[in-house]
């Protein structure tokens, strides 16, 4: 059942104020919190996309990671299979605080809309015009075995040509993104062992 002809074309890791693509550091910043780090990364990458500033932190993190990998990809049939631990809890807490505010309890539509983890899949789909399969899973930790089984099913049934897959998590000031692009050609073997190796290494 395993589609043997697929590879990992590229991967991106964002953690500890570093953006790494295929073993190479793309951007690093010694100080600052996550949102200022992401803003600087956006400027550094010379992206022009005003909607970026409207996104919540999870979407910004996913957007930047996806940008590094999809920038040069022309294949529009690229599925998005993402996962994390904290769902949209970082934004959920904000919505929850604003509706129970003791002075001015209000619900903000611009915050509420981000209280779903899959909104970041929508943001990436809009940015790269992907009318493709989307799914967002929640696990206690990065689960390459399950993600690989699921991706194999999408590839072997011809539902997609490429998959942008991985982990993107934001929880207060802690964050971690590890996305990889599965394609017919690439430098890394597409196996759970290799995914575990790449994830642990960076």
């Amino acid at each position: 059942m395993k589609p043997s002809s697929f590879h990992i074309a590229s991967y991106c890791r964002i953690i500890d104020n570093n953006i790494v693509k295929n073993d190479e550091v793309l951007f690093t910043e010694k100080t600052g919190d996550l949102s200022s780090f992401l803003k600087k990364a956006y400027k550094h990458m010379e992206i022009r996309y005003p909607k970026f500033f409207k996104m919540d932190t999870l979407s910004k993190l996913a957007f930047i990671a996806a940008e590094t990998l999809l920038k040069d990809s022309v294949e529009k049939n690229t599925a998005l299979v993402f996962s994390n631990k904290s769902s949209s809890l970082d934004t959920d807490r904000k919505h929850s605080a604003s509706i129970t505010d003791s002075v001015h309890p209000y619900a903000s539509p611009a915050i509420f809309v981000y209280t779903l983890p899959n909104i970041c899949l929508g943001e990436i789909s809009i940015r790269h015009s992907l009318y493709s399969e989307n799914s967002f899973f929640i696990f206690d930790e990065f689960n390459p075995r399950l993600l690989t089984d699921y991706c194999d099913s999408l590839l072997s049934t011809g539902k997609t040509e490429k998959i942008l897959c991985g982990w993107v998590d934001v929880d207060k000031q802690e964050y971690d993104a590890f996305l990889y692009l599965i394609a017919r050609t690439g430098v890394y073997p597409y196996t759970t062992d290799e995914l575990t190796r790449l994830y642990r290494k960076t």
């Binding site: 209000y106 619900a107 903000s108 539509p109 611009a110 809309v113």
Partner: peptide, 9 residues
């Protein structure tokens, strides 16, 4: 449309 809702708020 989300901005419009935000302006209503």
């Amino acid at each position: 449309s989300i901005d419009a809702l935000e302006l209503i708020v």
